[in-house]
Every structure is written in structure tokens, then in C-alpha cells.
Nucleic acid binder design. Sequence first.
RNA 1: CGGGAUGUAGCGUAGCCCGGUAUCGCGCCACAUUUGGGAUGUGGAGGCCGCAGGUUCGAAUCCUGCCAUCCCGACCA
Length: 500
Amino acid sequence: MYSQYLFTISMSKGVISKDEDYSQWFNDLVIKSDMAEYSPVRGCMIIKPYGYSIWEKIQAVLDGMFKETGHSNAYFPLLIPKSFFSKEASHVDGFAKECAVVTHYRLKNDGEGNIIVDEEAKLEEELIIRPTSETIIWNTYKGWIQSYRDLPILVNQWANVMRWEMRTRLFLRTSEFLWQEGHTAHATAEEAIAETEQMLNVYADFAENWMALPVVKGRKTANERFAGALDTYCIEALMQDGKALQAGTSHFLGQNFAKAFDVKFTTRDNKQDFVWATSWGVSTRLIGALIMAHSDDAGLVLPPKLAPIQVVIVPIYKHDEELDNIANYVAGLTKELKAKGISVKFDKRDTHRPGAKFAEYELKGVPLRVAIGSRDMQNGTVELARRDTKTKETVNQEGLAQQIESLLEEIQNNIYKKAFDFRAENMVEVDTWDEFKRMLDEQPGFISAHWDGTSETEQKIKEETKATIRCIPLNNKQEEGKCILTGKPSTQRVLFARAY
RNA sequence: CGGGAUGUAGCGUAGCCCGGUAUCGCGCCACAUUUGGGAUGUGGAGGCCGCAGGUUCGAAUCCUGCCAUCCCGACCA
């Protein structure tokens, strides 16, 4: 006999509605939920403990997956000699415009109380703060690889990188960001391609099963490819405002970097060949994706599998004896939940009233809330509230841990389903140019359409509509069609969207 | 980096046009009463008005530069 009813959020303190101003809503959530704040340095952010704990969860799971697929972690330097960047032409073109450069190694006092750069401490060769690590890593791999017996090399690093972005957004595009970058070396192209695809699948698995984020796996067109790659695979997700977000990439680099850094090996039949390479990465941008895909006007909605706190317990009491009584019960419940690997927070602060705590944990996206008062203690019940559906019900204390465990699973699935349904509603096939433009304006989302396969057409579409080809989906069905812009023949549909 | 807007206490704001050292709400601190959806009362603290120059007897207010945020472009995980 459970009573169930909707409860409304009377006010979402300081968070603007997402329908009113999506960008502002996103920023409000990040700040108000205590995930991050701005730093004194342009484009850089301070990731606060709550936000960082989500990143730690992401790291832990992915790191396990990388190790499961045979990779090891290593660490390469933050600073890279400038000359390394000139070795791979398309790579330098891709990153040159956004590199921070270290030119001096000392400051001094100018005698008037100011600290200034000591011009005498100028570096012979400037150092680049890594925007990505291909160059330093391939320079290093040259010393590690002589024979096919040394291959493959399967290395990942967790690091920060810096790209001097013109326009920044918390978590989505900051000048400095945290990520992982895998860099592997192989004896054959086939093996490297298999690695590229394997890691794409790891990312897709993580996005769908942990972040509850449905993604489209696909390949980038030549225009959208990573600087220096022969082929870029990606996972693309749809945000609640209908814009696409690239959530992860995996690149087949061919022999480009091996040639640039002269990394040759002796094959089984005693011939010299260049090594085949891949690189793949995801960043703290995933946290941005998590927020934009699931959250609502009351705050974050975190999938239980990545929530730093999965269950929060709020006691409701008037006197200390009541609290003692409740705390006594909570101790037992907490123990049971922890035994199931569920993270629990018992918030017995007496400086905040229950309503304030409810609002706070809604803002922070805690999936399940248990409220217990004296009335419950008498009845042998608790009040259980779900963040995802904003419903609450009164349930028996008996078997509660079990129920919480299955509810968390249900919430995880429900959040995924919600995101999946949203994407299904906002992914349409379109066959005419007018329809294409109309959909972008009236119901933004993924648009599946025919394209003649040329960079010029892709470019023209981007200029006229701001929509880009997010990817050519893997396992795309082949069908005859006409390019929406030029009317030229096409063999398959590709996925367009406006993107972050 | 180009165009537009904004910046006043932790947050949201009034004052700016028409110069005379700052308004209100929330939050914060103390005490009391409270505690099943963001408590109430009383008392109190908190500001070199984004930063740096300039004009002026005097600048939150006028002028210049810079920085940051948001929106629109170019760039991008």
C-alpha cells in the first residue's frame, strides 16, 4: 500500500529554466550544484570536490576498461619542444593556433616591487604546453621500437592538456582540461584499425551503460577529421537543446606519426616498415554531456552508476532522542547498503531543515533520497524519493536495502530510456533542402540525410545552416538517394546536426 | 579574434542619463523559538561600486584601456 504522488519544486533557487535560457541554465547548474567555479585565469576552471568526484568515478570505470583491453598507464611531460610540432604538417596546422608557449624560465624583482620576466632567462627553444601528446609520445616510441617483437605498444595516459580556446564554456570547452589519451603502436594497418574500433566500442559502452547516454557510433568526414589522422571514429550524443555533442573520439593515424618521427621496425620477414598508430580520448567534457543530457530545472539528474552519492538519508526530528533513535536505525541500513556497494550519505546536520536538504540534494542530482521521521519509526516505514521521476512513496523498512538496490538499477535504466526516447523523437530522415532547413530551426536534433560525399557540399551546408556532418554512422544501410543540397547521387545517409 | 550586451557585499539588485563615498532582498554571524518540502523573531557583521589610468575640489556615476561573463560569427574534445 504505497502512496505515490508528484511533488513539485516550488522554486529552484538561482537556476534559470532550461527552456528560457539553455546556456544560462547549464552554467547555473554547474555553479549551484557545486561542481566547479571560474578561476582567475581566462578559460580555466576550478573543479570543486563534488565535480571532481564525478570525474574520479568516470576515471575509475574507464581505467578498468582500458586495462581489461590490455592497456597500461604511463605519463609523458607537459612541455613539448616546439620543433616537434613542425614534424607532422597537418598536425601542426590543426593545433598551431591554440598553443600556449613557454619562453622563459625565471622571474625577477625589478627593484620597484614588481615581479617581471627575466629577459636573460630566455629559453633557447620555446616549449609548448601540450594540446595533445602525439608528438612527444612518438618521439619517445622511436626509442622503444626496433622489431615487430616490440609491438604492439598499448599505452594510455591521464593528463591535463591546454588549448587556447577563443570561446570557453565550463566543462564543454575550457582552455585547460583533463582527459585521457591512448596512444598505441602496431605492426599492421589491420591491427591498428581493429584497435581504433575496439576503443570506440569501449567509449560507446561506457556512454550507454554508465552515463546512460545513447550514442551514435560513426566516422568523421575528411573535413571533421583529427589533425594528422587517416580516419576518425566518434561517438555522438544529443543534448536536450537539440545540439549534438561529440563525446569521444578514436583515431586511426596510419603511418603519419611514425614517418614524422622516423619510427621504423623490422618485420618478421626482415624488412623495414613504419609503425601503425592510433590515438583515442575522452575528456572532462563528458561531465558537460552528463549534465546537458539528463538534468532539469531543479538541478542535476545523475545516473546512479556515476553519482558520487547514490542515496542520501535525511532525518526529520524534533528532539535529540528522536535523532538518536533514527540514527540507530540508519546505522543498520547504511551497513546493509554499503555491503551492496551503494554509497550513502546520512545528513544529520541540525543547521538545516529538511526542506532545505531536499532541495540541495535535488540540485546535486542524488538519485534516491530516504527521509525518516518519528512517524516513520513508529510505522516501520521511510519515505523514498526518486530524483529522476520526482516521485516519492512511503515504503516499509523491511527489505529496504534490497528495494533501494533495485530502484537504483531502475533509475539508471529509466534515465537511459528517457534520453533514448528523446533522441528517437529528435532524429529524423529528411529528403529535401527546405525540409532540412525547416527541421534545423523548428525541431533541432539529428538529421539523417543524403550527401554527395564532397567536402565542398559539406562546407556549403555548414555555411548556410551551421549544421555539420556529425558522422557517417557505422553499419549504415546502403540506399540510393539524392544529395539534399546538390541533388547528386548518394549511396547512404549521413547524420547532420548543429553541434557544440 | 570581430560585432553586441553586461559587470555595485557570497548571490540577485537600486543608484549612473543630471558627479557630493551606496538601496533593497536572499545568504552570513549571535540568541531564542522551530524542524514531514527551501523556518520565524530580535540584534549584528560584511563594499577601496570588475581592474588600471584620466578628467574634476570631489568619480559607482564622465572618458580611455584592460579583464571576465553572456549572445552572434570564426575555432574547437
